[in-house]
Design a protein around this nucleic acid. Structure first.
Lengths: 334, 334
DNA sequence: TCGCCTTATGTTAGCGCTAACATTAGAACT
DNA sequence: AGTTCTAATGTTAGCGCTAACATAAGGCGA
């Protein structure tokens, strides 16, 4: 930087300003600085800049997985807003593991990110402590709680799953199974509870719940289908914790010569792009992925810039999209 | 850090060492430092650490998209190796845009990453310059070239596509169409060329190429199917530049009442996890995604640690997986 | 024309850590 | 016991920037 300054005949401070707030520098000088930068091939050292300014221009996004497009639209939403604010995203993957989440949070705080967007509200106590003590803005997403760490863009997995289950009941399905996550995952668990609640509200007291190990992979649908077929009293509908598993289950059932929705209806959760294209088109709970990301990012940058002082809560909607994978249940023999 | 040092009764240097190379400190002191860290809630400032040590412990991964799981297994492969080396990943998405790639590279060099893994070998001249002048280890992947910037984990999109096309020809298909990318994308382009080369080698001089806009989305398959149906002499097979588009095309064709592979065969590229689960199971060029990531990361860390001095080239394999979406062409009337 | 205000640029002193060297204590030998 | 070596810890001097203040230069009204 010193060399650029010398070449442009200015102080390093002017170079710094030309880089960070071009408007604060006379056009003439700015041009000279830019020329000098080009000639020397200088690259602004953002590490030193972060240390001196105590702002890294970086925000952290912590999510369970980057596989299967589950959260990629949320990231896209965040990315769009981040670009407007000239911030860079650092993604960390936790693989649905709270200990890994803790490690990621610690590392990112060490890198002095300006704020964090986290998927989920379930964290280790020490992670919560770390985040709240850091004083940084934090936005939790994709789940709901009465005690967020800071701000939250909430989605009620419970209500959404309950609504889908109620819809299936309304269509005449009676033996509705739920495919949940064997691994600990609060969002999957809330969906299961929403499912159970809808059944109970309808007087059905015997939920049929099966679990799969890897909720990111369609292969789990094969597992699910096998469990379903082994059960003595076959369900007439299956509601899966997400669209990936639902698609896998739907295809696996068809491979076992069951017709969907003729013999068994299938519904998913998430409203992923691919769901509408499958044959049969997958019924799902449509969640506004990108919007969640955008709103979370907006809240975060409002806090970072100081425009907002207090934590904020926003709720997001969902829609039940009934497609071909769900029909109307034949009048049952009950 | 000064406070931690005082509390533990040591110098800051000892704290630094306890943090960075625990083995270089007496167990007794180490324990005292760890206690002090816990009591004070101290978080190691990696920004200052990076500045002082000139190493950030961070590597950049630059990819076209994080959507649709196209590169997520590659990232997973990189991540596994990075963890072993205690490095953190910073992901940047370019949306298949070289100007965005340039911006990402500039920003990441500014953050003084220790090395970069890039998808693709096609870059703006200034990006190439930036990367080679940086002196940092760079590993290009997922494509091949005789003039890599530094190291490369190569995959011949040309040969792979050629092999798939030859296989289809071998199965009796004669009017094979190719679905390519409307946007500029070297990997897609090389696949198209491989397709054309195979046709030519077989005496077919009239390639049938269609283009879709968004190669990350199954919706593009609908576009593709429409174009195919509009063509006056319908193809008997379609080879798509990737599995996502192939799946979309396959379903869209079926919705237009064509049977796959009865009326038309469909093949994809990539060997994504979901391909085998679809109905019909999707024929594809199987690429070892995770392996590409692992090998690229291994090369990168060998360079970063100084174990390797010179750039390295590794080639990766592919396999043709014929599945249900491709059968045997009925003896044609030609 | 003078002083006052505004805006553009420069100066100084760190940001919080670690490289490199200096020191010290202890072990191992004669 | 004295010497030499080794390993553990401490000291000093930055890493490359920018915050905060200081200064200089121009603009404007009276």
């Amino acid at each position: 930087m010193a060399e650029v300054a010398k070449r442009a005949g200015v102080s390093t401070m002017t170079v710094s300003r030309a880089l960070r707030q071009p408007d604060a520098v006379t056009p003439d000088l700015r041009k000279r600085v830019e020329t000098a930068i080009r000639e020397t091939g200088y690259i602004h050292n953002l590490v030193a800049s972060s240390l001196a300014s105590r702002r890294s221009g970086t925000i952290a996004v912590i999510l369970p997985t980057i596989a299967s497009s589950i959260f990629s639209d949320t990231v896209r939403g965040i990315g769009g807003v981040a670009r407007r604010y000239g911030a860079q995203l650092v993604l960390a993957e936790t693989n649905y593991d709270l200990a890994e989440e803790h490690r990621a949070v610690a590392a990112l705080l060490g890198r002095r990110v300006d704020g964090l967007i986290v998927v989920g509200v379930s964290h280790l106590p020490e992670t919560r402590k770390l985040l709240s003590q850091s004083g940084l803005p934090v936005v939790e997403t994709w789940d709901t709680t009465r005690t967020p760490i800071d701000s939250i863009v909430a989605l009620s997995n419970f209500s959404a799953a309950k609504a889908m289950t109620a819809t299936l009941l309304g269509l005449g399905y009676r033996r509705i199974a739920f495919i949940g996550a064997a691994q600990r995952d609060r969002r999957a668990e809330m969906r299961r509870k929403g499912y159970t609640a809808a059944l109970l509200a309808h007087g059905v007291t015997a939920p049929l719940v099966y679990y799969v190990n890897d909720i990111r992979s369609m292969a789990s649908g094969v597992e699910a289908a096998e469990q379903i077929l082994r059960s003595k009293d076959r369900p007439d509908a299956v509601f899966c914790l997400n669209d990936v598993v639902a698609a896998g289950t739907m295809f696996a059932l068809q491979r076992k010569n069951l017709s969907v929705p003729g013999d068994i209806a299938v519904a998913g959760f998430g409203g992923f792009d691919f769901a509408q294209h499958l044959i049969p088109a997958l019924t799902t709970v449509d969640v506004h992925h990108a919007e969640i990301g955008e709103r979370a990012a907006q809240i975060l940058f409002d806090r970072i810039s100081g425009a907002t002082k207090s934590s904020k809560r926003e709720d997001t909607d969902f829609e039940i999209s009934i497609r071909e994978s769900v029909g109307t249940a034949a009048p049952s023999s009950e």
